[in-house]
């Protein structure tokens, strides 16, 4: 593969790895928590982009894989004392198998019908888990204190979870890059542009789409496994939160859909913006006090609308369109 000797590919991974190492090197736990969230959002946005940006299928309910992976891994760690890494892998594989099974029928749907079906699948899964007693039903599950003991206590487990999320983020970005630059990825983009024409050119859309969906389900499931391992508690609401799915779409749009770096930039910008708004001090305008944190949803909405209406290619997409030389370095 030519990509493996491609400088921007390695540069991107090295930059992520070096930045992600900072909180560990500085021994700064609150910075580590911030970075954990950003890396998780990068995983969600990048994996959504693989199915949505490359293939053109807008998976509104992609969070279903995050929740499924999280639940299965959590259950295995809690009930069978399976090791965290193994449990996460099981969660990832289970989500991929699920994507394979539902992908075959669902990916026949196009456009809005597909988007609606993915929402339906997430809601069905959430309401099912809410009733599923082995997973704790509506209360969910939480770890016994003993679970963390195997990893040297809760503090070390937090550190381990961070290493895990860094590894998965690197893996997701690498996969996204390799797919984009491969024959497989070219086939996906042909499907995105015109599925019927792609078929006539020799592409079997059903096979490629299902495979892509299966791949794109794997990474959010790993992220879910790690996230809920760190939290020590899992509930149906946070695990299958449709809102988070849509946020991932927003990040992809913000950064530039169909690009490798777009979802990364989108995730970082979105997260920083949100936390800036939430923690911003109130603004005093004489008698009127405006608390920006109350307006964070409104501002996010206005920003999203502005992007959709005026910069549909997203930040990276816009840069690539505007400055042709950039294209070689910003995939």
């Amino acid at each position: 593969m030519k990509t493996l000797t491609n400088a921007p590919f390695w540069l991107l991974l090295v930059v992520i790895a070096v930045v992600a190492a900072a909180p560990v090197a500085l021994n700064n736990v609150s910075l580590r928590e911030d970075f954990f969230l950003i890396l998780m959002l990068i995983i969600l946005a990048s994996s959504t982009n693989i199915i949505m940006g490359y293939t053109g299928y807008v998976s509104f309910g992609h969070i279903v894989f995050f929740g499924t992976g999280g639940y299965i891994a959590f259950f295995l760690m809690q009930s069978l004392q399976l090791h965290f890494v193994l449990a996460a892998l099981c969660g990832g594989i289970a989500a991929s198998v699920m994507a394979l099974l539902i992908g075959v029928p669902v990916l026949r749907l196009r456009g809005a019908y597909f988007a609606l079906a993915t929402i339906g699948i997430n809601e069905a899964m959430r309401s099912f888990v809410t009733n599923f007693e082995p997973f704790g039903g509506s209360i969910g599950m939480f770890f016994n204190f003993s679970v963390y003991d195997a990893y040297g206590g809760a503090k070390n487990a937090g550190q381990l979870a961070y290493y895990g999320i860094v590894a998965v983020a690197l893996l997701t970005v690498a996969a996204s890059f390799l797919i984009k630059k491969s024959k497989f990825g070219l086939g996906l983009m042909a499907i995105r542009e015109d599925q019927d024409a792609a078929q006539v050119l020799g592409i079997d859309p059903a096979r490629l789409k299902v495979l892509t969906y299966t791949i794109s389900a794997f990474f959010p499931a790993l992220a879910g496994a790690i996230f809920f391992f760190k939290n020590g508690i899992i509930e149906p609401g946070p695990a299958f939160e449709l809102h988070r799915s849509i946020e991932a779409l927003v990040m992809v749009m913000l950064g530039g859909y169909g690009t490798v770096t777009g979802p990364i930039v989108g995730a970082i910008v979105y997260d920083r913006l949100r936390s800036t708004l939430i923690t911003a001090p109130p603004i005093n305008l004489g008698t009127l006090t405006i608390n920006l944190s109350n307006f964070h949803l409104v501002i996010a909405g206005v920003l999203l609308l502005a992007i959709v209406l005026f910069v549909p290619a997203g930040l990276i997409g816009w840069l690539r369109q505007r400055f042709a030389p950039v294209r070689r370095y910003l995939e």
């Binding site: 779409l249 109350n294 949803l297 409104v298």
Partner: peptide, 22 residues
């Protein structure tokens, strides 16, 4: 494409929900 209108209306969703919450 429909993604655009889905996101545009979702943006309105955020704005309305945000304002109503305030």
């Amino acid at each position: 494409p429909e993604l655009t209108t889905l996101l545009a209306t979702f943006a309105v969703n955020l704005i309305i929900t945000g304002l109503m919450t305030v």
